[in-house]
């Protein structure tokens, strides 16, 4: 059997999603962003909503999300993506509008914007990458940094007396009446990737129902910022991050 025989459509089990561009990704090897980008691209493609989807990219490592998924994009100022998304969705109600934000962007400088977008029940999707650190600026403490976790601005570990406590955003916003679906997922195993994809698809489907904001948190690794190998970062995430940020659905108004 030669290669040409093997490379037949019925034998293909995995391929690059149609909506992922050919641009070389700038993410570090082992980073969760690339996987989450792939899932979003697959969901948009499978739902057939490329022409009606508008993405809002944040400030942080994923500022260049617009280079990788083949849809129209708006690049927001730090933390402000939910404000852009709110107006975009209200002015273009037939569009699917999502923000893609990290924890520095969403849980620190952008807390007002995310909380009020949730409270107003904006019919948007929010993808929240929580890796407990500022990746792009070089590994500083984020609001989601765990107690004791070392970062470049908590070199001796996060001390709550000095740095306060980690914020658990998904649980906070679950108390707001404007949220429809809130879930926390990860992408560190094949099974987790499949569950995360289902969650992202559900969020996009809910945004068509005009029942409020859907929020998918992805507990993620930043192996460069954490100064670990990708494999060690995954283990550390399971052992430490999952305790503070347990995986699973938090709210679903249609259940």
């Amino acid at each position: 059997m030669d290669i040409a025989e093997i490379k037949r459509p019925e034998n293909i089990v995995y391929r690059k999603p149609a909506l992922i561009t050919d641009n070389v990704m700038h993410y570090c090897p082992g980073c969760s962003h690339g996987t989450v980008h792939k899932l979003i691209a697959e969901v948009i493609d499978e739902m057939g909503i490329q022409e009606s989807t508008i993405g809002i990219s944040p400030v942080g490592c994923s500022v260049f999300a617009y280079n990788y998924i083949d849809i129209d994009w708006e690049e927001a100022a730090h933390g402000r993506a939910p404000a852009l998304a709110s107006a975009t969705k209200r002015l273009c109600p037939d569009k699917h509008v999502f923000t893609y934000q990290g924890d520095g962007d969403l849980a620190s400088i952008g807390t007002a914007e995310i909380i009020h977008a949730c409270s107003r029940g904006e019919n948007i999707v929010v993808i929240f990458i929580n890796n407990g650190i500022y990746g792009m600026t070089g590994g500083q403490m984020a609001p989601t940094t765990l107690i004791g976790m070392k970062t470049s601005t908590t070199p001796y570990g996060r001390d709550p007396r000095l740095n306060g406590f980690p914020m658990v955003i998904a649980d906070m916003i679950s108390h707001l009446d404007g949220t429809a679906y809130i879930t926390r997922q990860s992408v560190h195993t094949a099974a987790a990737v499949r569950k995360a994809k289902s969650a992202i698809r559900k969020a996009f489907e809910y945004s068509e129902k005009n029942i409020g904001l859907s929020f998918v948190e992805i507990v993620s690794t930043c192996n460069s910022g954490w100064k670990m190998s990708p494999v060690a970062a995954n283990s550390w995430m399971v052992e430490n991050m999952f305790k503070k940020y347990p995986i699973g659905d938090i709210k679903d108004v249609l259940k």
């Binding site: 508008i54 927001a76 402000r80 404000a83 852009l84 975009t88 209200r90 002015l91 007002a112 009020h116």
Partner: peptide, 26 residues
């Protein structure tokens, strides 16, 4: 026409940023 009371001036101006991205008069 859409009219929305934002949670702050910061948010209001970023809402018009989003609206302007879509080519709307905001």
């Amino acid at each position: 026409m859409v009219v929305l009371q934002a949670e702050s001036e910061t948010s209001a101006v970023n809402m018009i940023y989003g609206g302007a991205c879509c080519g709307k008069k905001v």
